[in-house]
């Protein structure tokens, strides 16, 4: 029977069912994003590309908006991608995912392409996602008739263009557009945008939103697999330590991700079918089973905060405490009950 063009693809094609990998030994060996990209030593964004592709598997199409993972990954005439990949514009991750998913759905519905669930993933950096591309991502998350995942790899600056401040840069960070000077110590006074929770709260029909970090690679891959299995438009926000822009020895990429979580600065949570669940160490923190480490332990390890003095650390700590002590949903929703 001919499906109408407003039927959700999940109703007549479905999704790929990607079971979570229980334990590191269960992780697939096959690589779909391989060696020979041109990113920095210790690049956690390249790491999340690898994990994302591994989790999604071979029947996937990846769209990459402008940023490090475009310029440094795919320099013309060679590629690290095994699965199909295409560049999209800086603000277009939402549109790229929607357009690709729409093309596949229309062609399959009309019998012009063999029917199968194909994963469509568009990634963007924090500049492309939290800043320029926000309205297109918001629109994509309203289109429940399509299967698509938007993954925002957040290295907290426009890292590719030489580390300029973005709406996702942490308070006070040194960037080439917010350099501490003789008169102004803190040039960047905006608090980091709460992108994942904003999108989850603002798009009630979006079935899955999660935050991840490369320091928990298996959790990260399983969130990607969950998002793709649930179907519809979904969003994942990944925090990627960036040795270049954050200024630290690349060897400590993994450790800094852990510290971001342990200090409570980066909460790990997923929102599935409108139910929010913190996971990992963030869940322990919320339940009071784990004491948050002082933010200093994280900030002092990075050259981008080397200009901080006590009052800056204190302010950062106070704002982080609020997230866990005052927010309606600790670490997620910044409302408080009257």
């Amino acid at each position: 029977m001919q499906k109408s063009n407003v039927e959700p693809i999940t109703d007549f094609i479905g999704t790929q069912v990607l079971e979570p990998w229980k334990g590191i030994k269960k992780v697939a060996q096959q690589e779909y994003f391989t060696s020979g990209h041109r990113t920095c030593q210790g690049c956690e964004s390249a790491q999340i590309m690898k994990l994302m592709a591994k989790a999604a598997g071979p029947r996937s199409i990846i769209l990459g908006s402008t940023g490090c993972m475009y310029v440094a990954n795919t320099t013309y005439y060679s590629t690290p991608w095994v699965i199909p990949w295409m560049h999209t514009q800086l603000g277009s991750s939402g549109s790229a995912a929607t357009g690709t998913a729409a093309g596949l759905r229309a062609l399959m519905r009309k019998g012009k392409m063999s029917k199968e669930p194909i994963n469509v993933i568009a990634f963007c950096g924090d500049g492309g996602g939290a800043d320029m591309g926000l309205s297109a991502i918001s629109a994509a998350l309203q289109h429940t008739e399509y299967n698509l995942l938007i993954l925002m790899y957040d290295n907290e600056s426009y890292a590719n263009t030489d580390i300029q401040v973005s709406g996702s840069s942490p308070y006070g960070a040194n960037t080439t557009f917010s350099t501490p000077g003789k008169v102004q110590r803190i040039m960047h006074r905006r608090w980091k945008k709460n992108t994942a929770a904003m999108l989850a709260a603002g798009h009630p029909e979006c079935k899955y939103v999660a935050t991840i970090c490369t320091s928990s690679p298996i959790e990260a891959m399983n969130k990607v697999r969950r998002a793709l299995s649930i179907g519809g438009p979904t969003f994942i926000h990944s925090l990627d330590p960036c040795p270049k822009g954050w200024d630290y020895d690349p060897m400590y990429s993994h450790e800094l991700g852990e510290l971001a979580i342990e200090t409570g600065i980066w909460p790990l949570y997923e929102v599935e079918e409108n139910t929010v669940k913190l996971y990992g160490k963030s869940r322990q923190i919320a339940k009071g089973l784990r004491k948050r480490k002082p933010v200093r332990e994280y900030l002092e390890r990075q050259g981008r905060f080397a200009h901080f003095i006590d009052e800056d650390f204190d302010y950062f700590q106070a704002k982080t405490d609020e997230m866990w002590e005052k927010w309606l949903v600790p670490g997620v929703i910044p409302f408080s009950n009257p």
């Binding site: 391989t34 060696s35 020979g36 005439y77 060679s78 590629t79 690290p80 095994v82």
Partner: peptide
């Protein structure tokens, strides 16, 4: 298991 790699950019000089 040895994944196929980018043959034109090797990166070891980094």
């Amino acid at each position: 298991y040895v994944p196929t790699r980018n043959t034109t950019f090797k990166k070891f000089s980094t």
